[in-house]
Nucleic acid binder design. Structure first.
Length: 276
DNA sequence: CGCTATGTTGATGT
DNA sequence: GACATCAACATAGC
């Protein structure tokens, strides 16, 4: 479920096991997840070492000795794993990097929406893909500058990776709930104060999620995420959290905004006067 | 069986 | 150009 907190967790995991070891093989089990030609990829990677890991938004970069980089994007269901023997290879491993130490790094992705690419440099890739500033670095001034010029709905705007990189569907709902802003507000209707609140909420949600390694059920009770349907099924035995954390009698409402499932507290996040 | 799903991209329409 | 909508991608899990 890779949004920014998961990708950051994967990056930290990789950073601990992959650095400064020669890559001895690039094993492809399903070329569907390759965004760069397989032979090119193998040729550019085997024999090199990963010198550093980086992350922008939902993209994880493995920088190589020659300054180029592998880009990992995890789509909807991507994950990483490590193993040593073939028979321990995780289910749905699509690509495996073999290290000289014998450890193997698995790119796991059941639904194959993820991609592995090679790029000349991280900054080159950021520019080519028009990635905005990482959500952990974004300032209130940047948000105000860009969003106050937009007439679109705030939720789809926050999901736009060229405005700020790393916010996904549930994170945006959580951020807007924490900031007490309705997802159908228009970008150009937010006040300077609300942009500051938004930036603080982004920091709160992301740092909380990362500190729990993106394990949602460990998040504080003040978070809206517990009201999402899949959370109740993920925590059998736990009573359903259908109500607002701040208003025990107000039920969380589900709707679709920009054709994405959206959860809102109707009390905390008043709908704009003019819907539509 | 039918339905939903965390992301991204591209086509199409207004 | 700005904005909205929707299909497509491939598959699991309920």
């Amino acid at each position: 479920m890779p949004e920014l907190p998961e990708v950051e967790t994967y990056r930290r995991f990789l950073d601990e096991i992959i650095l400064d070891q020669p890559i001895t093989a690039f094993e492809v089990h399903d070329a569907h997840v390759l965004g760069t030609d397989e032979d090119t990829l193998r040729q550019r990677v085997v024999g090199q070492q990963v010198t550093a890991t980086r992350r922008i938004g939902k993209n994880c970069f493995l920088e190589l000795t020659d300054g180029t980089a592998l880009v990992l994007h995890f789509g909807m269901t991507g994950d990483v794993g490590a193993y040593r023997d073939d028979h321990d290879m995780p289910r749905f491993t699509r690509v495996a990097l073999h290290l000289a130490s014998g450890l193997r790094i698995a790119f796991i992705d059941p639904r194959k929406f993820g991609r592995i690419r090679h790029t000349e440099s991280v900054s080159h890739y950021q520019k080519a893909k028009k990635l905005g500033p990482d959500a952990l670095d974004v300032t209130a001034a940047h948000l105000q500058h860009v969003l106050s010029a937009k007439k679109g709905l705030i939720k789809p705007l926050l999901l736009d990776q060229s405005i700020t990189a790393g916010l996904g569907n549930w994170i945006v709902d959580e951020v807007l709930f924490q900031a007490k802003i309705h997802p159908e507000r228009r970008g150009n209707t937010l006040t300077a104060k609300e942009f500051r609140t938004l930036q603080v909420a982004i920091q709160l949600v992301l740092s909380t999620a990362i500190s729990h390694e993106a394990t949602y059920r460990h998040f504080p009770a003040s978070f809206l995420i517990h009201a999402r349907e899949w959370d109740t099924s993920a925590t059998p035995g736990t009573e359903q959290h259908r109500f607002c954390p701040r208003h025990p009698k107000v039920e969380i409402e589900k709707s679709y905004v920009g054709s994405r499932a959206t959860y809102v507290c109707p009390r905390c996040q008043p709908a704009p006067d003019c819907i539509k």
